[in-house]
């Protein structure tokens, strides 16, 4: 009797545990993984930007798509909840001091990456234009909303 009641408890316990782990899923790790993924996408087109490799429309378009997919996943409320300027992060407190500005920077980034995908560049010059429209966002957002720690 006793043991069957215990067994009945197990699914409930498992449910409670998984709910707890969803709540503590670390937004810092998650947003950093998303950022690193964008960095990798940039890496795939850097040899083309530098002129070390010839222009390749397929490589370029898949990198822009990747950047756009990642960009659309950035959500200020879930990935940058209040209080997550503490810990192993380079997020600046300005994200929360000027949250409207940060949200606007994300919206602009999403619009610019979507436009770059739509441009579907077919030669080096038009790719450079499309890419710099995207990559300007990296520097501008990092300028205001990030601080170097060590």
């Amino acid at each position: 009797m006793q043991s069957s009641r215990l067994i009945a408890l197990i699914p409930a316990l498992a449910l409670a545990l998984s709910a707890a782990s969803a709540a503590t899923a670390d937004p810092i790790t998650e947003r950093q993984a998303l950022m690193k993924d964008q960095g990798r996408a940039v890496g795939t087109v850097t040899p083309i930007m530098k002129g070390e490799k010839p222009f390749d429309a397929a490589i370029v378009q898949s990198a822009l798509k990747k950047l756009n997919d990642d960009a659309q996943k950035i959500d200020a409320a879930t990935l940058f909840p209040a209080g997550t300027d503490k810990g192993d992060t380079t997020a600046s407190p300005k994200i929360w001091e000027d949250n409207a500005g940060f949200v606007a920077a994300i919206e602009k980034y999403k619009a610019d990456t979507a436009a770059a995908v739509a441009a579907d560049p077919k030669d080096l010059e038009s790719f450079k234009t499309a890419f710099s429209q995207v990559s300007k966002n990296c520097g501008t957002c990092h300028q205001t909303y990030r601080i170097k720690k060590d």
Binding site: V42, T46, H142, R146, I147, K148
Partner: peptide, 11 residues
Amino acid sequence: GFTPDFDSLGG
């Protein structure tokens, strides 16, 4: 602005 690990210099 891109570092060797494709981070983008900020601040």
